[in-house]
């Protein structure tokens, strides 16, 4: 995973509350087999008119947001479906930071697996950022080490983040690799508790022929 330390970039403001992951990557694109190429699909139904023509009414299509890499939005962002495609879309579109008062729980987790930093700020702070983001070319600098969001107009907000999450993002850690360092403990746990998938009536259960019984 890419580490995340600092980032500075243009802010794109999406003034909508409770944006769900169905909006971020609609279901038809959840049939793909890869993790790549979801940037073009992000906010698909909002972003495009028929024939993938950009919808001029959709905030992110404003020319001033071209090249934006910090997404500013409202509470409960990316709630709903667990689809990690939503984060893959955010990242591939070019966003490295998402700022909102709160996030959907699964999306928040998924961000950390993909090197995207979700920044939760107080409602009033987010309101202030929305006001400032009305200025064309508004930029924010985000420093994960210091846990700050700042602009060149003297604004500086601190944000909270769990220390363990922070470290894994700063170092771009391979979480699976880390967990596998505890393989002995996992084995010991399995011996002690023996979680078995009992199947008392295999004849009555219809598995695909290829699967072992």
């Amino acid at each position: 995973m890419h580490p995340f330390t600092k980032h500075a970039g243009v802010v794109a403001a999406l003034d909508r509350v409770n944006v769900d992951t169905d909006q971020m990557i609609p279901k038809q694109f959840c049939k793909l087999l890869t993790r790549e190429g979801y940037g073009r699909l992000l906010f698909y139904d909002w972003r495009y008119l028929d024939g993938e023509k950009p919808n001029p009414d959709f905030p992110l299509n404003r020319p001033r947001y071209r090249g934006a890499s910090v997404l500013l939005t409202r509470a409960n962002f990316a709630c709903g479906s667990s689809r990690e495609h939503a984060v893959w879309g955010v990242l591939d579109y070019g966003f490295r930071v998402v700022i909102a008062p709160s996030f959907g729980d699964i999306f928040y987790n998924n961000c950390f697996k993909n090197g995207v930093l979700p920044v939760a700020l107080a409602d009033a702070e987010v309101d202030e950022l929305f006001r400032r983001a009305e200025r064309e070319g508004y930029r924010l600098s985000v420093d994960l080490e210091k846990q700050t969001v700042a602009d060149d107009g003297g604004l500086r907000f601190e944000f909270q983040i769990d220390p363990a999450r922070k470290e894994s993002l700063l170092k771009g850690l391979d979480e699976i690799g880390l967990s596998l360092q505890h393989a002995n403990e996992i084995t010991a746990y399995e011996k002690k508790r023996q979680p078995r998938a009992e199947m008392h009536d295999p004849a009555g259960v219809d598995l695909t022929a290829a699967t072992p019984r």
Partner: peptide, 20 residues
Amino acid sequence: FGIGTSEVEHVLATQCLVQF
């Protein structure tokens, strides 16, 4: 509870999840 695809991979590999 529901998890993302990276966590699916984590569970496949370790039968565990890192949880808060």
